[in-house]
Amino acid sequence: MVSSNKLFEEPGLKQITVWARGVYENKEARDVVVALTEAAAKEGKYVQAWENYVDLPDRIYVPVRAYGKISDQPIESKYVYENETPDIVVLTEETLVKGVDILAGIRPGAVLVVNTKRPPEYLFKFLKKGTENLKSIITVDASSLAKSIITLSGAEGATDASGIGKGLGAPLAAAVVKATGIVEFENLLKIVANKQAAKSAYEKAQVAEVKTLVNAG
C-alpha cells in the first residue's frame, strides 16, 4: 500500500488564509477570500470559501481567520476546519505580524500580503518563524484606499448584504492578484464593489523578495 499521506495529496490546490481582528474586520477577511474565489470560479476553477468556525463568533479584536481554496481539480479536502498549508497569507492589519504564528505551515513559494504604510523590510523583522518557505512580502496601504466596513451582515454563513469588496477586501485581493496572478485582475474587478480601490492597490502594491530582504540583513 502507498502511504495514506501521499494518497490524499491535492497538487493543484492553492490555499489562501486571511488573518484579521475579530468582529471589526470579519467582513474584510471574508471579502478577500470570497472575491478571489468568485473571480476564480469565473475562470472555471473549483473553489471553496469559509470562515474559521472556532475563532468566531463575537470575539472582539482577537485574531480570526477566513479561508479560500482554488484548484483546477475538484476539491477533495472539503470538510475541514483550517487551511493547514497556505500558499497565500493576508493580514488585514499590520500588527498581526507580531505574536501570531501567521506563517505556520506555509508551502514553499508562499507570499504574505499586509495592509500597512510601512516598508517590507521593517515588517520582516517581526517574522520570527516560517520565513524559509516565504517567497515575497507584498505591502499595500489598503486603509488609505478604502474605508473599512464594520458589519455583522454575512456572519454565520449568511449572505453579506453590504456588498463584496466594498471595504478593505477589494484592495487586499487586488494586491494578492498582483503578487500571484492567481486570477485575472479583470475577473476580480467584476466581483468587487470598490473597483477604484482595487485598481489603485494593483498599481501601488510593493512586492519585496524575501531573498533580498535576508541579504540586506
Binding site: T37, A49, W50, E51, Y79, Y81, E156, G157
Partner: peptide
C-alpha cells in the same frame, strides 16, 4: 445538516 461542515462552508 451537519453543523459547520454543511451549514457554514460555501458550496
Amino acid at each position: 445538516q451537519d453543523g459547520y461542515f454543511v451549514s457554514h462552508i460555501l458550496g
